[in-house]
Design a protein around this nucleic acid. Structure first.
Length: 697
DNA sequence: CAGTGAGCGAGCTTCCGCTTGACTT
């Protein structure tokens, strides 16, 4: 008789691909992530009983579980093919338990593979294995630890600072990093320094060079007097070409994308937020319709590995052989995979090299094609030969000063041949032909004043990089980490920079003071080491948790008893007066953002939206307030508080200042080139100026 | 490009890590 097999993976897009590879005899279904987990409403860890977690079916997932159970019963044979990492092993473990509970006669096996290729799938199916209990235990320990930390610290914040706040092993470190960087930015004192450009002449050729060495030392000129003294010394002395040098350099192509590097590059090159990058990557992964069939354009987008399947290597080499034979290396390039990587998936790469960005243009929207292009370019280039550059530099000596001019050109374009969107902007400096001993004429010297710029705030790109380097968070969580900090008003994003709010600073300071070990980078590193010992040596996880929890809980209780509540200190007094009782109103942070409330609470319960500006409509005494589409969804816009009597709206956020030309309120606009500008939106007025002052948070 | 319009101030919040849809007004 025919045996039917149910194969269960995590992602539905993966399921349909694998079903195609396996053909008849197999049904492939998706679990859509975890189905069994701790309940959300309670801590659900039994502290008295060795930290035993209490698992339930995740809310909203019962239907999927039931469906899998009935499919399993029909098939009789089940292959658990969740991802080959810690979380995947736990998913397999919980699935097995749930399926067996319904039917103990089921034959259930586990299979693992690290890439979605026909060969890898068939090999895995032929070699089923058991569930790795140690790996499952490591996941349990991780889950329990995070629950204990999060569900102890968060309520502490509710009682000391404000309801609804949150803290956790990952988000609180991210917040701390952002707050510490902010302190560095605030305390930075710019340093003055000077540079000197020399304009020289040889016959009809003009030569512009920069002072680089003075008395054999790299220049470090602090003030104008010093630079003037040097200029004086140089006057009247003939400049001579003292050296002409050429240096060749090899440029290696970069490794293909992981989630972290994709988010970084998309943020830096395309201006995408981490969240946007992941949304678009998901669309490319799920596929688009090409010639009436659905094609997944990229491999799985949540990965910590740069590994490439042999099949993909073969394909890209074949493509290069046909299209860029001169840039094809003899053997494939390899890239090392981070030691800490769980390596369950390949790097992010195009699924079909022949779908070039050029060809995909007609199938994709603007953002999709941009993201697809950088993925395609990064992958194809990673299997091409190095580029080679020649940097020529000419040194011009006057007394103790060396001026230098240099220029770089490509000798071999190599992998750069296929790079268009990812190409770095080359500065093309024309270099004159001079030889050692040539003497020149001085045209003039130009001294320029500069200031050191100091540290920059974190962006989506740099915080993700920092987190990944420290092993904090996972590919599936980098984008949500940023989102949660924004949602809680711990952080705001201004001009792509992440800046802590007063609330964020207070929370971070409190956690750093009271729980320094928990919000340190080392905490996660230590946790990972312990999890490795659970996984590799079979160390008892309950004991590991107990060791951490006893002192932690003691400190939580201590803070609860001793730290004074600062509830309400964040409420800002305003000049607004309550129209119901005459008391002043205060600005408070509520569930849906900031609002004004009467200070006479609870006797007077009046509230209203924060007025941002006067309504400019003639005869209207309303105020402009922030609004959103019903349900809190959609983009914020700014309308008159007298709606529906007055229907005035603006898409741009009003500032506190008024237009000096017409009296209309000014708005902030983001100009791609200039940055933030204030401009008047009165259609009859053209006022605009760049924004120089720092305004209110 | 068009079009967008509560509520919050009492209760019941929160973690990290997997994964995608979505009851109706």
């Amino acid at each position: 008789m025919k045996v039917h097999t149910l194969l269960i993976v995590e992602s539905p897009a993966k399921a349909s691909t694998i079903e195609r590879y396996l053909g008849p005899g197999y049904t492939v279904s998706a679990s859509m992530g975890h189905l069994i987990d701790l309940p959300k409403s309670r801590i659900a860890i039994d502290e008295k009983n060795n930290f035993e977690p209490e698992y339930i079916t995740v809310r909203g997932k019962a239907k999927i579980l039931k469906d899998l159970q009935s499919k399993a019963n029909k098939a009789g044979h089940v292959l658990l093919a969740s991802d080959n990492d810690r979380e995947g092993e736990a998913i397999a473990y919980h699935l097995r338990n749930s399926l067996i509970k319904k039917n103990e006669n089921l034959e259930i096996e586990r299979i693992i593979f690290n890439e979605i290729t026909p060969a890898a799938i068939k090999e895995a199916v032929a070699k089923p294995i058991g569930i790795n209990e140690r790996k499952v235990n490591a996941q349990k320990a991780r889950r329990v630890l995070d629950r204990l930390v999060g569900y102890n610290l968060s309520p502490l914040l509710w009682s000391k600072v404000k309801n609804g706040l949150s803290a956790g092993r990952v988000q609180s470190v991210a917040l701390r990093l952002i707050c510490e960087r902010e302190k560095e930015v605030e305390s930075f004192i710019p340093d003055e320094y000077w540079s000197l450009d020399g304009e020289f002449k040889k016959g009809k050729t003009n030569i512009a060079a920069q002072l680089v060495l003075y008395k054999d030392k790299k220049i470090d000129i602090k003030d104008e007097a010093e630079i003037n003294r040097i200029i004086e010394e140089l006057k009247g002395v003939e400049p001579v070409v003292s050296a002409v040098k050429g240096v060749e350099k090899q440029l290696k192509p970069k490794a293909p994308f992981t989630t972290s590097t994709l988010q970084q590059t998309a943020a830096n090159r395309l201006g995408f937020t981490s969240r946007k990058t992941m949304q678009i990557a998901q669309q490319l992964y799920e596929g688009i319709n090409i010639d009436s069939s659905r094609v997944g354009l990229i491999t799985y987008m949540r990965t910590d590995s740069t590994r490439i399947s042999d099949m993909a290597i073969g394909e890209v080499r074949e493509w290069l052989e046909a299209n860029h034979p001169d840039e094809l290396p003899e053997t494939p390039n390899t890239y090392s995979v981070k030691k800490s990587a769980q390596d369950a998936h390949e790097a992010i790469r195009p699924t079909y090299i022949r779908y070039t960005p050029e060809e995909m243009k007609k199938h994709l929207n603007k953002d999709q094609i941009k993201l697809y292009t950088i993925i395609w370019e990064r992958f194809v280039s990673c299997q091409m030969i190095n580029a080679k550059t020649l940097t020529t530099s000419i040194d011009i000596k006057i007394n103790d000063a060396i001026f230098r001019i240099s220029s770089t050109k490509y000798l071999v374009k190599g992998f750069q041949t296929v790079i268009k969107m990812l190409k770095s902007k080359e500065k093309t400096v024309k270099i004159p032909t001079l030889k050692e001993g040539d003497s020149l004429e001085v045209e003039e010297f130009n001294a320029n004043q500069h200031f050191t710029t100091g540290p920059s705030r974190f962006t989506d790109a740099s915080i993700v990089k920092m987190l990944e380097e420290n092993g904090i968070g996972r590919p599936s969580t980098y984008a949500p980490i940023i989102s949660v900090l924004l949602d809680r008003y711990y952080v705001v994003r201004r001009n792509k920079q992440l800046q802590p709010t007063t609330l964020g600073k207070i929370i971070s300071d409190m956690l750093s003071t009271q729980f320094p070990n928990v919000v340190s980078q080392e905490f996660t590193a230590e946790m990972e080491q312990n999890l490795d010992r659970v996984e590799e040596e079979g160390v008892e996880w309950h004991q590991m948790i107990g060791k951490f929890y006893a002192p932690f809980k003691k400190q939580v209780d201590h803070v609860n008893e001793t730290l004074e509540s600062i509830k309400g200190v964040l409420d800002e007094p305003t000049d607004e007066v309550c129209e119901k009782c005459g008391s002043p109103m205060v600005k408070k942070l509520g569930r849906f953002g900031f609002f004004l409330a009467c200070s006479g609470f609870p006797d007077c319960r009046n509230t209203k939206a924060v007025p941002l500006a006067d309504c400019p409509k003639e005869g209207c005494d309303g105020k402009i307030v922030a609004r959103r589409k019903a349900g809190g969804k959609g983009k914020e816009f700014y309308g008159c508080s007298n709606y529906p009597e007055c229907e005035f709206i603006s898409h741009f956020k009003p500032t506190s200042s008024k237009c000096p030309k017409c009296g209309y309120f000014l708005v902030e606009k983001n100009d791609k080139k200039i940055g933030t500008v204030k401009s008047c939106i009165n259609p009859d007025c053209d006022f605009l100026h760049t924004h120089e002052d720092s305004d209110e948070g």
